[in-house]
Design a protein around this nucleic acid. Structure first.
Lengths: 340, 340
DNA sequence: CAAGAAAGCCAAAGCGCTTTGGAAGACTCT
DNA sequence: AGAGTCTTCCAAAGCGCTTTGGCTTTCTTG
């Protein structure tokens, strides 16, 4: 059932039927009702390919997915996707993932824009002066950055959490509890979020005349194993930290294992605070010692990004507003006063 | 730069240019070279929307993503996606995720097929007599099922692992080590994979004249917390098992925590084998006691599914062949002879 | 009551590609 | 040399929708 047939059986022109369906004003309300009714009754759905060709609108949002044998997709991604999908569903949007060589995403961005394959894109895990952001900005497709980049001579729309503030608060608490030697087990420090988190820790320490020891900060891919190794190294060295701030719950698993391996305890010997993106399948309150966390739902972020993308597509959102969400500091059993 | 312009500057018709580009035989090789060359030089890329409208082919594969506030996407999904994306990238395929209400995916399947939004779809986590499989089968779109359904009067193409065999082997080993009371901490038993795994355990037990105690099998959503709870319950009851087989590494984290909480040890008091889908961020060899696993890379499965989908789209694969991959049983420190 | 405005509808021209049905020229064969 | 066969290319017809520009009617208004 296509427009032509529908128009024919209503004894109307395609023009009128199309306009009636798309809510244009120059059609009689009575006629519109007739058309709408017939369309519904016959299950008429406009062919999206044809509509795309005519309008250029696709009803899809895009994401360039870095892939490769040695590239791992962040497990946080599913949660982000849950949020995004939840919003997208209620607005008839689909998400298209365009896999790209992790080292050459630019080509793919150019392709999906040139081909008009999607109405908007989002960018995640940005780095300072991220080329993707600059590219997408010049290509002129609506976009939202999830996270932040830095060092551009232009502004751009983003949704991010207050990573610096979160880690500042966490560190401040530890300092107040008497800790003097903090360590930071961070994610890849080429990414902005990791830079911000480190900045937060340093700022808190500096406020008390302390500093982050050179060997007390490490930047690794956020796996359980790396959390373990980092902790082992930290605690076996001479000036072992008495408190650790950690960028992910998964790494925190490794931290806990390392501490136990060394015959130490949390929080007796080491206090621990980790960042929690809120996974349904791994909860900080269920760690052997309930874990204190800086908490921010990445699922909500996904929904928000989708919402803003939809708004930008339909022209409801303009400008380059960046928004920064506060992060909760949730204190549980894994922190205590510094050992004597 | 579109076909018309390109044809015009080559002083050829659109027909010829189109054919030259698409490898049709009725064009002079010399001409083809000229066309190809000019196309490359001017960076001509056929407009996909137009091509879609004309051919119906989209160059996209589809996945209906169940969403909802209370629906969690399986974290395995990112790994599957890695494999899928890796293959798709090298074949210029994109993946479109169509979010759907988890309780009404049918509408979405119908939509994406009716709209010709994708060339093929895959279905994951199927259940016995899964309605999605039946639906997609009648809709006539190429598809592959990742996993297996059961109880249809038709065959369908799938790629699955030998869940029953894997859990049979794992159980057999435990029995040979003298264990008599096994327990199974399984995933949602409405899904086929869970049914097959239980079947494997039962078959191994039956071969030695044993059975799976009624309270020794539980079926839960695969979270750390549920692993913990199930284990706690199992071990605190009267006829506590001496060995546990567990359907996921994440649940195994909870198992380990529960065992420790009760002052017991692995493998001294309880032997443990879990299924490992191979995550880069959580490895069984890094558990406090290295974990024995039944191992099968879900990433490879993703790549294989993409490969088969591509083959079916281009008509290279026909028929309804199902393939079942063997699973490795990897023995590490978490198993030992039954306690006396 | 004639003239101008507004409302309601339509025919046809795209959007950019593929594909059908020829046609012209070159080549083969008897 | 004439008939038949390839080879190589082309014009034009879709694919199904939106949108432009215009044409009737009907409704105002002085």
């Amino acid at each position: 059932m296509n427009l032509k047939q529908l128009a024919h059986m209503l004894a109307l022109s395609q023009t009128t039927v199309s306009r009636a369906l798309n809510g244009y004003p120059e059609v009689n309300e009575e006629t519109r009702r007739r058309v709408m009714d017939a369309a519904k009754r016959h299950g008429y759905r406009p062919n999206p390919s044809a509509r795309r060709l005519a309008t250029g609108k696709t009803g899809m949002i895009g994401y360039v997915l870095p892939t490769g044998a040695s590239v791992d997709i962040d497990p946080h991604f599913v949660e982000f996707l849950s949020g995004l999908g939840d919003y997208a569903r209620s607005h008839e949007l689909d998400l298209v993932l365009s896999p790209a060589d992790a080292d050459d995403q630019e080509t793919t961005y150019r392709r999906i824009v040139a081909n008009r394959q999607v109405d908007a894109v989002y960018i995640s895990s940005p780095r300072p002066a991220d080329r993707r952001v600059a590219l997408v900005n010049t290509l002129g497709i609506p976009f939202i950055v999830h996270g932040r980049s830095e060092g551009f001579d232009f502004d751009y729309p983003f949704t991010d959490i207050d990573n610096e503030g979160a880690f500042h608060e966490a560190s401040r608490l530890l300092i107040q509890l008497g800790h003097r030697r903090l360590a930071l087990i961070n994610g890849d420090d080429r990414e902005t979020f990791a830079i911000h988190r480190e900045r937060g820790v340093r700022r808190a320490l500096a406020a008390s005349g302390l500093a982050l020891g050179e060997r007390h900060v490490c930047s690794v891919v956020m796996t359980e194993e790396n959390g373990y190794r980092a902790t082992k190294r930290l605690l076996e060295a001479g000036d072992a930290p008495t408190a650790i701030v950690c960028s992910s719950l998964i790494m925190a698993l490794g931290v806990v294992r390392a501490v136990r391996d060394l015959g130490l305890t949390i929080p007796g010997d080491v206090s621990l605070i980790a960042h929690d993106d809120v996974f349904p399948w791994l909860r900080p309150e269920n760690f052997s010692v309930p874990l204190s966390t800086t908490r921010s739902s990445i699922r909500l972020a996904g929904a928000r990004v989708a919402e803003r993308l939809a708004a930008r597509i339909s022209g409801l959102e303009e400008g380059v507003r960046g928004e920064v969400w506060p992060v909760d500091l949730v204190v549980r059993g894994s922190v205590a006063g510094a050992p004597a």
